[in-house]
Amino acid sequence: MFKVLNLLDPLLVLSAALMGVTLYLIFQWVPTELNQGAVQRILYFHVPVAWGSMLGIFVVSGSSFMYLWKKNEKWDRLAVASAEVGVVFGGLMLLTGMIWARPVWAVWWTGEAKLTTALILFFIYVAYLMFRAYFPPGGQRQRLAAIIGVIGAIDTPIIYFAANLWSQAHPPIVTGPAADAESTLGSDLGMVLLASTLAFTFIFIYLVQTRYKIRKSEDDLVELKRTSTSSSMPAGAN
């Protein structure tokens, strides 16, 4: 188990080190934000995780497009790996956002444009993964999945525009103690966010890489099975 995960991967070691630095910065170095208190520190996890999920969507749509164009297996593997990791990051983004919103906005969820967009995109990429899981394996599955990846990318700006218009018509209800307070941290905040985002980006790349290898092994296995059945069976048998 630990061997296949390749825990000595330089990427993982680097992200672990960076994560240590980030944790120090988050809990020791950066001062407590005056309006929100300790919960504001959730931001240092929430923002990088949200960035990771956006990165996931970006890579899925890019590599889906490349797959439709070049028909190279490699792009399909990259698409499925980043979709799965993107969904994990996206789920975390929604959860951490809700946990932050509860004490600060006094609601778990609200119809704010970014929230709505994130949720709908999350559903689209969950559907992408389910489609892959339900569709019989083969070239057609990869092609159709790539189409969903591209459609998701095209839909993203339209969803954001609609969600924005919608939240103007229905102002989000946020009544918490620090609902519209400006941050009192300024550049300290940016510094910690940068370190944290870097650490999470490395984790993202490590996870995508690990998932990519699994996809590769699956393909190898299918290939091996095909050669083994064709060699062990008498010619002409099916």
């Binding site: 689209i124 389910m130 839909d155 969600a163």
Partner: peptide
């Protein structure tokens, strides 16, 4: 529906 509904959400809102 899992594919269709999230994608048409903007249209549904409109």
């Amino acid at each position: 529906p899992l594919l269709f509904l999230p994608v048409v959400t903007p249209l549904l809102m409109a």
